[in-house]
Structure formats: C-alpha cells, structure tokens
Write a protein that binds this DNA or RNA. Structure first.
Lengths: 101, 101
DNA sequence: AAAACCTATCGTATATTTGCGATAAGCAAT
DNA sequence: ATTGCTTATCGCAAATATACGATAGGTTTT
C-alpha cells in the first residue's frame, strides 16, 4: 500500500470501531464468537473439531480476535481457555449501538 | 488463498454479518457513513474535499459500501447522490444488536 | 528423561485490499 | 460537435489477509 500521507487521523471512536469491525469481518471469526457466547468459554481444540479448518488456521483467527481485544486467553494447563473479553465486548457493543442509533 | 475445502458453509446471518462488518472494517468507510448520517446524503465530490484521499480512492470505498448494500447511489446529473440504504442498514443494525445482545 | 498432548509460530503460496495517477464514461451546457 | 464537470474504472505497486503443513514451545504424565 502506498502511504504518501502519513496515515489519516480519524476520530478515536471511528478508529476503534473500524478495528472491531475488521475483526468481525470474517464468517469464521463471527462463528467462533457466537460459539464462545454459547459456551461462555472454550479451548482451541474444541474449535478445531467444530470447524473444518486446520489447527493453525483456527489459532490464527483466535490471535486476531485477541489482538482486537474481543477475546482473552487463560492458561488452564495443558490447555488454553478462551473467553470473551467483556470490557472490550461492551465497548464494541456501545460503539455499534451508537453508530446505528 | 488456498481453498482445498469448497468454501465452508456458515449460517446465513453469520455470512451476512461478516459481510457488513468487513465493509465497516476501515476507518475511512466508517467516517463516510457517519458523514452520510449527518448530511443524510452527499456527493462523491463532497467527500473528496473532506478526506485527504484521491478521488479514485474515495470512489473505491463508495463502491465497497455499495457492494455491501449499506449505501445506494442516485443519479442527479451531473452528480451522483449517495445515501444510506435504509433496508440493509436496519438489517445490519439488527444483526449487530442480536449479536451483542 | 522421555513421551504425549495442546497450542503457537514459521514459512510458503495465493488472494484480497488499499492507494495512486491516468484514463474513460456519462451528462449538461455551450 | 466541443467543452467542461463529475464520477467510475483501469493498471500498477505494495501491504494484508487467508489457509495450509511443518515445526517449535510449553505442560503434564509416564
């Protein structure tokens, strides 16, 4: 990408919402989050069984959701338990609510 | 992208929401939509003056929003007036509402 | 210490996205 | 018909995203 202009400055809410939206912009990630909502939490392995995707692919999607702040991982040896990150979840929620009015 | 599996089948709502989210996944497009909400409608040229981006770039973002169904263009020669597509907007709204509960 | 299990990361291939300038396309007015 | 105005599209370049297999890293159990 050519970035002649040193990154446009947007409103902070705009940036935050775009970041959340981007993370939600893939059906697999939506599905993962819906799954997490139902189960409240789950392990990577559970998801690998639910979705016909390679373990590395699932892991990558989880990483993106984590980077966006929508989920968080908790070490439960020998597994890792992923849960919704409620603070950011609520933040995203209110951003979308406000956006759509 | 390698697609060994012939495209995973997701729930229709999941697919729809991911499509909307993807369109919202860029700050410029969020900003354009916010602008449209304020003004109710506007022309491509207006946006070119608001954002420090090339006209072709703006046009491309508008195209994506149109493809996602979030806006619609109406010919007002010699200009084109863009407005929010209310039906799909409301659909997106309810999808996100339901998603976040 | 070794084996087994679970998950993350690396390397690779391909597709998509983002952005620009240049050009084309459509319409109005001259 | 030509000009001018507005917007879309094309062609390019660079960055990101998506998916996989292979491998590494960390824990627990043997």
């Amino acid at each position: 990408m050519k970035r002649s202009l040193e990154h446009i400055e947007y409103n902070q809410d705009t940036e935050a919402m775009a970041k959340f939206a981007k993370a939600l912009g893939h059906p697999t990630r939506i599905a993962i989050l819906k799954h997490l909502e139902n189960q409240s939490c789950c392990f990577t392995g559970d998801l690998v069984e639910v979705f016909p995707l390679a373990q590395s692919t699932i892991s990558q999607h989880l990483k993106e959701l984590k980077n966006a702040g929508l989920i968080q991982g908790e070490l439960k040896p020998p597994k890792i338990k992923y849960c919704i990150q409620r603070d950011n979840w609520n933040k995203a929620k209110s951003l979308f609510l406000e956006f759509f009015e």
